[in-house]
């Protein structure tokens, strides 16, 4: 689209602080409701940790999705890939601690392959990313459901440490998520691959003219995205003690990961945003869930509010934009 040719340079400080601002609102709302309903026992450090621990799988997936969206792509196949990798991990391990390493290897290999295929379809065959990854999602889900229709295999106790182990009062998985986010931040901020992602996402043609191998960057971003989804699958296998072909789609990780990325200020058109915004988005989602539980909002009203909140949060960034929304 030609109107992306000259993206206006936004130098607003607002852009940088907006995710923090939204997170602040969410926190205030949580504290307000806890105090307002006289449930101050929920305002403890332990409970904060438990809130942060609500959305580890979503967080891991969203780190990857941030890469895909930054490069002006999108990945709808993460939910099926999560199911597939959780099942694969659980089947390969099958309760045997000696099989943990092979299982993790197999899962990461699957993620790598799916990411490569997604990337090639999008970058080389120039298929619209929405269609390419939707098609991929159907194919993965179909292959998976052809073989399994329920929980299969079992994760050994040793591997359940990933989801249930703690370091002091902090769950290991939360530390892992933060470390993953820090690594992603480092890549995006300090490495060539990171700056290329922003260039390609901002303006593909200009990036190509500047000598960046755009296809490789897009493929790389999709590999990162799929690898993160695979890790989320490993985490869920550990948390649920097994894998089933529906856990990814039941968790709506595809649409939710996209939602938290854009709530975190990363622009769907690509090129602007970052990991810490996404982390803020994940925390906002966890807080919203906890607020709903605290206030006893019924399941249907929750949906209505969630839909409105997603749009409102994104509008918070976009409303000042001068460009046409796609």
């Amino acid at each position: 689209m030609s109107d992306i040719a000259n993206p206006p340079r936004f130098t607003f400080r607002f852009e940088r602080w907006a995710p923090a601002l939204l997170l602040g609102f969410a926190l205030l709302a949580y504290v307000g409701i806890a105090v307002g309903t006289g449930q101050t026992q929920y305002l403890t450090f332990d409970n904060l940790i438990s809130i942060l621990g609500r959305s580890i799988a979503l967080g891991i997936t969203a780190v990857g999705q941030t890469f895909a969206i930054l490069v002006s792509s999108i990945d709808l196949s993460v939910a099926s890939l999560i199911s597939a990798t959780a099942v694969l991990a659980s089947v390969v391990m099958n309760g045997n601690p000696a099989m943990i390493a092979p299982a993790v290897g197999a899962v990461l290999a699957l993620g790598l392959v799916v990411g490569l295929i997604n990337g090639v379809l999008i970058a080389r065959l120039e298929i619209n990313p929405l269609i390419a990854t939707l098609g991929m999602s159907l194919i993965i889900q179909g292959c998976l459901s052809a073989f399994v229709s329920n929980f299969v295999g079992q994760v050994p106790v040793e591997f359940q440490v990933f989801a249930y182990g703690t370091m002091g009062s902090v769950p290991f998985s939360l530390v892992f998520l933060l470390a993953l986010a820090a690594a992603a931040w480092f890549v995006l901020r300090f490495m060539r691959f990171g700056s290329d992602i922003y260039s390609v996402g901002g303006n593909k043609d200009a990036a190509r003219v500047a000598g960046i191998k755009t296809s490789r960057v897009i493929i790389g971003a999709h590999v990162v995205c799929s690898l993160c989804a695979s890790i989320a699958g490993l985490y869920l296998a550990s948390r649920l003690r097994s894998g089933a072909p529906w856990i990814g789609s039941d968790g709506v990780y595809d649409l939710e990961s996209i939602a938290v990325v854009v709530i975190g200020g990363t622009v769907l058109a690509g090129g602007r945003g970052g990991i810490w915004g996404t982390m803020a988005g994940v925390m906002i989602f966890s807080l919203i869930d906890s607020i709903f539980n605290l206030a006893g909002v019924d399941a249907f009203a929750k949906q209505v509010l969630r839909g409105i909140i997603i749009v409102a949060a994104v509008a918070f960034y976009t409303v000042r934009s001068k460009r046409l929304a796609a």
Binding site: Q41, Y42, G251
Partner: peptide
């Protein structure tokens, strides 16, 4: 809302509330 992951977190929340 039909999610295993969420139900596990919900039970944690309830226990944390005491």
């Amino acid at each position: 809302e039909g999610s295993d992951d969420k139900q596990i977190a919900d039970i944690d929340d309830l226990l944390a509330g005491g």
